[in-house]
Amino acid sequence: MPDSKIAGSKLKKLRLQSQLSLREFARRIEYSPSYVSHIEKGEKRGSVDFFAKCAEVLGISAGDFFEENKIYVPNELKEAGVEWIQLFNEMKHKGITTEQVLEWIEEYRKNGK
């Protein structure tokens, strides 16, 4: 079983990157904010159902919480065919959101520019 603190810290990191408050995230996955907080701190172990719901809201695979040194690319970007993970990470660090990238991809597809 993977370290619950590692999975919890990854959950918190991904939640914050998605700009979701603890309360809003908990509402979306239908768990209490207190329970989510305990998981993020590694004080409790989340169930398969818990991580599946988290992954769905965050747009990732549930297994991503347990893989070390993994670069997270939201499913939307994977489906759009973006393979430049390094570029994605640089954009993420500059505060460019997934939604902005998807808009740019769609505009590029429409205009060919």
Rank of each mutant, 00 (worst) to 15 (best):
R28V: 01
C54Q: 01
V82C: 12
A26R: 06
G42T: 01
N69M: 06
V73M: 15
K113R: 15
V82F: 13
S21V: 05
L22M: 14
M1L: 13
L77M: 15
E24F: 00
L77Q: 07
P33N: 05
E83M: 09
E90V: 11
K44E: 10
L20G: 03
K92S: 14
E24R: 10
K78M: 09
I6H: 08
N111Q: 11
P33T: 03
D3W: 01
F25N: 03
D64N: 08
G42H: 00
P2Y: 01
F50P: 05
A62Y: 05
H93F: 04
P33A: 02
K44L: 11
M91W: 09
E107H: 08
E67I: 15
E83I: 12
N89D: 14
I71K: 11
E99R: 11
A52T: 11
I105S: 07
V57F: 01
D3V: 04
F50I: 04
G8Y: 00
K12W: 01
S21Q: 07
E43I: 09
V48L: 14
S9K: 14
E68V: 10
W104N: 14
P74K: 00
A26K: 04
K41H: 11
E56T: 08
I60C: 00
Y31H: 11
L16V: 13
I105F: 12
S61P: 02
I96Y: 07
G95Y: 03
V36A: 03
M1F: 10
G42S: 06
E103P: 04
S21E: 10
S18T: 04
I6D: 11
L20W: 07
K113C: 09
L11S: 06
F66L: 05
G46W: 00
G59V: 03
G46E: 01
Y108N: 08
V57N: 03
K92P: 03
K13N: 13
L11E: 06
Q86G: 15
K12Y: 04
K110R: 13
S21L: 03
K12H: 11
A7I: 05
Q86N: 11
E67L: 13
S4H: 09
A26H: 06
I71V: 15
E56P: 02
E90S: 12
E56K: 13
E83F: 06
K5I: 14
F65T: 01
G112W: 05
H38T: 14
G112V: 07
S18Y: 02
G63R: 02
R45I: 01
I60N: 00
E83P: 05
I60P: 00
F50M: 04
M1I: 11
E43H: 10
Y72K: 00
Q17G: 05
L20V: 02
P2G: 03
S9P: 05
E107L: 12
Y72M: 11
G59Y: 00
F65I: 05
G46A: 02
